[in-house]
Write a protein that binds this DNA or RNA. Structure first.
Lengths: 269, 269
DNA sequence: ACCACCTTTTCTTGACATGAAACAAGGCGG
DNA sequence: CCGCCTTGTTTCATGTCAAGAAAAGGTGGT
């Protein structure tokens, strides 16, 4: 499916990044030989990548033990006015407050490539909790985050972002396109989106969008919990807090100029 | 001086990282042509790097505007059990408390390649304040951080880490090797290090080490201020708080197994 | 002192990164 | 509305330079 995306790939870059990732994933400084084994690349090649990455300070070399570990250069990359990073920092305090108030998992998501991309997660402390991973993605149509992000876009964009047919993930998943688009209108009117076990059985999510001054969603925050803990009264309280928090963040973002532009899909060919 | 370090460099990796850095530094999504101009590389080359980096999710492509921006992959790299990142997270709360209590700039530094590497900085809110940059380095011999890091190492390592002759940065810089080594003994005994305008005139720093269970410094925290604000009584209070905070962090680190191993220099050839 | 293991260096080869140039696709002004 | 001009994409021939085998240099253990 991504045969087109796999063109023009520069091998040395791919392989060097693989090595970098291995160094970063290692819980402790790692030696050349271990990297060679892990990466399944020739020793000389790995050696040269390590030297190159070290010159860029992306990794650092411990002369004593001849081991490599993550370097300060990574910090530069991920903090140099990275829009995701700033968005996360702005949202963090409100997300923590939501988590503390309801003790459920709070997710921050943006639209990326026709999917929801989880940018940040503040986890509930309960043993039974919803768990996603930062950087992971979920479909738009089956998640509260996705629907919130879709609803606060132009009608034209909703059309292009929503595939003609969407996969059924649970018995509750809404797979009828018209029904989905109708629901988006309701979400737009009420200001929040629900996911009643549509993405994963037994889980329930509430999401609200963070909008710019044109009422376009830049991101969305959701609270997710087992369905049993998310009934009537509690859900109402959550909805209210969530919408307040998101509106607050939206106002805070207006102050900044480093606005986060969510990816918008190209028109269907 | 680093002619040896510049060997075995893989060009595609260097250039691709340059492009990645440019994308990350841009305050807003940036187009291919702008990158070509900024990087001074052929268009085709930059194009291929962008595709490669996008495949790795280090950057993301906005189909509408044909622009590129930092991607979520960066987050993976810098947060996948990066020892610096974990150290920073552990130290942050105490650093913030120190900053709030004294309203002076608080620095976190580690030993890296015979220098102090600033890992984190919590800035004073005063208009006249000491200011360093995360990722920047300073000499060991002229900074409180450096001396604290040196003092809590074996005598042998102090010898190898301290160059035979050190540069004079201000009139107060201690350039006599014997005098320096003597002072390290005192620092080791008292538990804190001072910099009285030795690195920059008019600035005064107090530093204390964060030690592991063998009393080896993993990192150090310093408070820096204009000399005028750092006299007798205040300095004593700062010293006490600093040493308490560092001891606390040391204890917290003992709990974790992801200990941060500071770089140790190789024996002088 | 020998051996085993690991890093570093050297060297040859051909795969492949390269970049000029042509092509396609918008966008803007005339 | 048309055509020029900017920007992204593709193609292709070339020679660079990344690759990897193999050997040398170091280090620590028994």
């Amino acid at each position: 499916m991504d045969s087109e995306l796999e063109r023009y790939l520069v091998q040395p870059v791919l392989k060097a990044m693989q090595v970098l990732q291995l160094v970063c994933e290692a819980s402790e400084p790692i030696a050349l030989n271990d990297l060679v084994r892990a990466a399944a690349l020739p020793k000389t090649t790995v050696f040269r990548y390590l030297r190159t990455l070290a010159a860029l300070r992306l990794i650092e070399h411990e002369p004593d033990s001849d081991r490599y570990r993550a370097g300060i250069g990574l910090w530069w990359l991920s903090h140099a006015s990275n829009p995701y990073e700033t968005l996360r920092q702005v949202c963090r305090p409100e997300m923590k407050r939501l988590q503390q108030r309801f003790n459920e998992t709070v997710n921050l998501g943006v639209l990326s490539d026709r999917e929801v991309l989880y940018l940040d997660i503040v986890e509930s402390e309960r043993s039974l909790r919803m768990q996603a991973t930062i950087g992971a993605t979920d479909p738009l149509h089956s998640t509260a985050l996705g629907k919130a992000l879709l609803a606060f876009r132009s009608a034209a964009q909703r059309e292009t972002l929503l595939p003609q047919s969407v996969p059924r993930l649970t018995p509750n998943t809404i797979v009828d396109r018209v029904e989905l688009l109708d629901q988006l209108e309701i979400i737009r009117a009420t200001g929040f989106a629900l996911d009643l076990g549509e993405n994963e059985e037994g889980s329930c999510c509430v999401a609200a969008p963070i909008c710019d001054d044109r009422n376009i969603a830049l991101a969305a925050i959701s609270l997710s919990a087992p369905a049993a803990r998310m009934d009537g009264a509690v859900r109402q309280a959550i909805c209210a807090s969530l919408m307040t928090a998101c509106a607050e963040i939206g106002r805070a973002l207006l102050g900044r100029r480093a606005e986060v532009q969510s990816t918008q899909a190209q028109p269907a060919a």
